[in-house]
Design a protein around this nucleic acid. Structure first.
Length: 897
RNA sequence: GGGCGAUUAGCUCAGUUGGUUAGAGCGUCUGUCUUACACACAGGAUGUCGCAGGUUCGAGUCCUGCAUCGCCCACCA
């Protein structure tokens, strides 16, 4: 017998097995065996320079569980890993780094910048990949993809060119969300609406045609007054209709601006008069278009005011300018009042400052396949788990607007468009003037490439197929795209349902050939919850409530972390996480470890190489009720696990297996084994049943706790060297049947009675201050013949479990302290026993409960509607339970008298 | 302003298509190093199932309304 330590030590086991797995190549997706069913997942690519968070732990543990289960089921499975370049986020980090080096992106120029950025990425990037390995993620690392890889970049540019040729991509001057920090346009999805405490200023503009008459206007943005080119009222508004066509004075720079009528203006809001600033508000821009208004942009890209704002403001930050504008209004006597006001302000997701609506030349995508994308989910070709996200998805598609895909940054895929040198206002549809292709024009010296790069999401939306070689036919074949696409399951957070999930669906439908079911990128999408702290707050660096998963792994082991997280992660609900949850997982590992240790100490391991080999050691004549019960529970657990996988109920799986193993197997079966193993004839069978239970438990737990299960799998002789538990099937019902082992459910059911007997006997002992006594003298008055027989057949086990020297059959308990069990009355048969009457109190309490039950059951049975309408089983059940309760009351009364 | 989710023991949550007397883990209290495990074992205490109606023989479970908390979407200055 090998030395096996008393407590499980995860760190050495985990590192050893991860190394062995990778060396063996067992995570590699098999592309040759086309007969086996295929299963695939693509990882949601983390930022290449990011580090592992609890969110990643949840997300990737689920993926690992799914892929390992698929391997166990004999599928040819692949999990494709990778990272993305996270355009704006990384550019910001590199900019900061360059500043610390005393230089800047601008100073270096584009090419040098890219060079430095790549070097920086290679130095600081990829940490997260190593961390995923610590977690046990069984990705096919030979397929690691990065969105800026040459092949992937080619896919991104190909997609752009195709969409351009189809007319889905256009360039135009539009109002976009501008981030004054990162100096780039953003998509609508990258703008976060935040409720803000701001001020609503009421001011007045004088009517030019009627000096001394004013209109009152409310605004939250006085700093844009300089860009006002009109004042608008609703044409149906009786108060102001007569002003339309006249003018008023814009206070600074002082200018006459028209008063126009536009039905956009809400008569009920504020004063019903709107100042129109076409250059700085999307709605105002629309009004400006309708009325042909002048557009005056008074801001610089960085959010400072420009010369057009006037000498008082030029160069001033927009928020300073706001204060200054208010001051000026006050000086001019035009400010009526200022009041506190709460409104929603759009913030830049990355920059963390309010975005500025800004008119600029950008590239836009008219989303392709919108309707089909909606159909794909509505028809069930793609299933969402939980289903409720389907509504959110459909709503987004119904209200979709063109996607601004250009970014004014260098870190990303440069837009593959070239303009002929010397041509002013080149015509985008004239190939003589504008060139659009993946490789660019052959005479590059005569052209200038567009400076913008693509939104990161405009590269990652191709992820499911660009990671499989698309559009290169040879690569696609080599990587087995015909087998692995569409992918099976996508696991991600609902926060990127629009950013990523919806767009991937559209991309798959747009770029791949065939029927809908062959073009969709995945068949199921599992949306995880968000990991929060115990107060329900999001994990964040600034709150300091974000534990480092690596520290947790070092302390408790990866298996413990995985189990702890999955155990409290109901489908699609947010998760309140604390380290105590990981302790449960760690403790469970220890329980597993010690159960196997106990098995080894109980006797030499026999042939454990297969279910058949184990079953061959079982003498069916030696199987008793406990064997039938544990095997029955094992089968039921395995079946429940199978069903839970189908509906993605992971926490149900952990709870089920935890309860089976801890309570049924360790808490009961191993305990009864201790007495049965004293008999040579039974021992061989009991050990075989233990081996079978341990084997199947390890298999069922493996996807959740890959390391310890692999270790024990080999220690216990279930698997040969070079073979892995991930490739062994968890099915065993058929094999059991083939080996001639049939479960007797009636016999199994009687174990519940034995358990109740033990619990009650222990309680009685505890109440009589004999809790720790191992040789109590007990008496037993069986409730019926079945109970009598059960006691006789299991007497040795019961004595050991209860801690009794004797349990003697009796017909009367006299005045001894007694308790009622489901099998009959148990009493302590010793005159010197001192009882404080606790057992009498317990019985009185029991009696009260029973009385209540009898009363309500009598009432139910007395109700003709109940007996007539309720199913027969329910009525019969009620009658039977009534009789049992009455009998118990009778016995209690007898004992208490 | 629309939509979605949550509300069950001190804490975190289970509770399948409505069917006996509502469960688990953690925590807590008492006892135990009982020859696998103190990361353990045995025993105990703890609930107006958010509120109000309704459907039903029967509701934690289905329906309606309300409340509180949270999330998503939305161009009202």
């Amino acid at each position: 017998m090998s030395d096996i330590s008393k407590a499980y030590n995860p760190s050495e086991v985990e590192d050893k097995w991860y190394r062995t797995w990778v060396e063996s190549g067992c995570f590699k997706g098999e592309t040759r065996n086309s007969n086996a069913p295929h299963y695939s997942i693509v990882i949601p690519p983390p930022n290449v320079t990011g580090v592992l968070t609890m969110g990643h732990v949840l997300n990737n543990t689920i993926q690992d569980i799914l892929i390992r289960r698929a391997r166990q089921e004999g599928k040819s499975a692949v999990w494709i890993p990778g990272t993305d370049h996270a355009g704006v986020a990384t550019q910001t980090k590199v900019d900061a780094y360059l500043r610390s080096e005393g230089t800047s992106a601008r100073e270096l120029g584009r090419d040098k910048f890219i060079e430095r950025a790549k070097a920086w990425r290679d130095k600081h990037g990829g940490i997260i990949i190593e961390q995923l390995k610590k977690l046990g993620a069984s990705c096919d690392w030979s397929r690691l993809v990065h969105t800026l890889d040459d092949d992937y970049s080619k896919a991104v540019l190909t997609a752009f060119v195709e969409l351009f040729k189809k007319g889905h991509i256009y360039r135009g001057k539009r109002m976009v969300n501008w981030c004054p920090v990162n100096l780039t346009a953003l998509s609508d999805e990258e703008v976060l609406m935040k409720p803000c405490k701001s001020k609503l200023y009421k001011m007045r503009y004088e009517i030019a045609e009627e000096p001394g008459r004013f209109v009152e206007i409310s605004t939250t943005r006085p700093e844009t007054i300089m860009g006002d080119t009109a004042v608008a009222v609703n044409p149906d508004d009786d108060r102001y209709r007569n002003l339309i066509g006249k003018h008023c004075w814009r206070p600074f720079p002082r200018a006459k601006i028209p008063i126009i009528g536009d039905s956009y203006v809400d008569m009920k809001f504020g004063t019903g008069v709107l100042k129109v600033t076409p250059a700085h508000d999307p709605a105002d821009f629309e009004i400006g278009q309708r009325h042909n208004l002048e557009i005056i942009d008074v801001m610089n890209p960085d959010g400072t005011m420009n010369e057009l704002a006037g000498p008082d403001f030029a160069g001033m930050d927009r928020f300073k300018a706001r204060d200054r504008a208010v001051e000026k209004l006050r000086e001019l006597g035009l400010l009526i009042k200022e009041e506190d006001y709460e409104n929603n302000v759009g913030y830049s997701e990355r920059g963390g400052v309010p975005i500025e609506p800004r008119l600029s030349d950008q590239w836009f995508l008219r989303y392709p396949k919108i309707k089909e994308a909606k159909d794909a989910v509505e028809s069930g070709a793609i299933k969402f788990w939980p289903k409720r996200w389907e509504k959110t998805y459909a709503h987004w598609l119904d209200n979709i607007r063109d996607w601004c895909i250009s970014r004014q940054i260098w870190w990303g895929h440069r837009i593959p468009v070239w303009y002929r040198k010397g041509v002013e206002n080149p015509d985008i549809h004239n190939p003589e003037e504008v060139h659009v292709s993946v490789d660019g024009p052959s005479d590059k010296e005569n052209w200038v490439q567009d400076e913008d790069s693509l939104d990161t999401w405009a590269s990652s939306w191709l992820w499911p197929f660009a990671t499989m070689g698309w559009p290169d036919k040879n690569k696609m074949k080599e990587l087995g795209m015909e087998y692995f696409y569409p992918t099976s399951d996508l696991v991600t957070g609902p926060d990127i349902i629009f950013f990523w999930v919806a767009r991937m669906i559209m991309a798959g439908l747009e770029f791949l050939p065939g029927t809908m079911s062959s073009r969709i990128p995945f068949k199921n999408v599992y949306f995880t919850g968000i990991i929060r702290d115990m107060q329900g707050r999001k994990m964040s660096k600034s709150l300091g409530n974000s534990p480092d998963p690596l520290e947790i792994i070092a302390k408790y082991g990866s298996d413990g972390l995985r189990f702890g997280v999955m155990n409290c992660a109901p489908q699609g609900q947010d998760i309140l996480f604390s380290q105590e949850r990981v302790e449960i997982g760690r403790n469970f590992c220890n329980k597993l470890w010690n159960a196997c240790r106990f098995r080894k100490m109980s006797g030499d391991l026999a042939d454990n190489s297969s279910i058949a080999a184990i079953c061959a050691r079982i003498d069916t004549n030696m199987l008793d009720a406990d064997d039938h019960a544990i095997l029955s529970n094992l089968l039921a657990s395995a079946e429940q696990v199978r069903r839970d996988y189908e509906s993605y109920q992971f926490n149900s799986i952990t709870q089920n297996l935890y309860s089976f193993f801890w309570n049924d197997f360790c808490g009961w079966y191993l305990e009864v084994s201790k007495s049965r193993m004293g008999y040579a004839k039974a021992k061989r069978t009991v050990l075989a049943v233990q081996d079978l239970c341990l084997r199947q438990t390890l298999l069922l737990l493996h996807p959740f706790m890959p390391f310890i299960t692999e270790e024990l799998w080999h220690q216990m002789g279930y698997g040969k060297d070079g073979e892995f538990i991930q490739n062994a099937s968890p099915e065993f019902a058929d094999e059991l049947e083939k080996s001639g082992i049939a479960i007797d459910e009636d016999s199994a059911a009687s174990v519940a009675l034995l358990k109740d007997f033990v619990t009650k006997a222990r309680a009685l002992k505890a109440q009589c201050a004999q809790g720790t006594k191992r040789d109590s003298m007990l008496g037993f008055i069986p409730a019926d013949d079945h109970a009598k027989m059960l006691l006789e057949n299991n007497i040795d086990k019961l004595k050991k479990l209860v801690g009794a020297q004797e349990i003697s059959m009796a017909s009367d308990s006299g005045n001894s302290p007694a308790l009622l069990s489901d099998m009959g009355t148990i009493f302590i048969n010793a005159s010197e026993v001192v009882s404080d009457g606790a057992e009498r109190k317990k019985m009185l309490k029991e009696r009260e409960k029973l009385e209540g039950f009898v009363k309500s059951t009598l009432a139910r049975l007395g109700n003709p509607n109940f007996t007539a309408k309720a199913p027969k089983e329910v009525v019969d059940g009620a009658k039977r339970q009534l009789a049992e309760a009455k009998a118990k009351i009778e016995e209690i009364d007898r004992l208490l008298k």
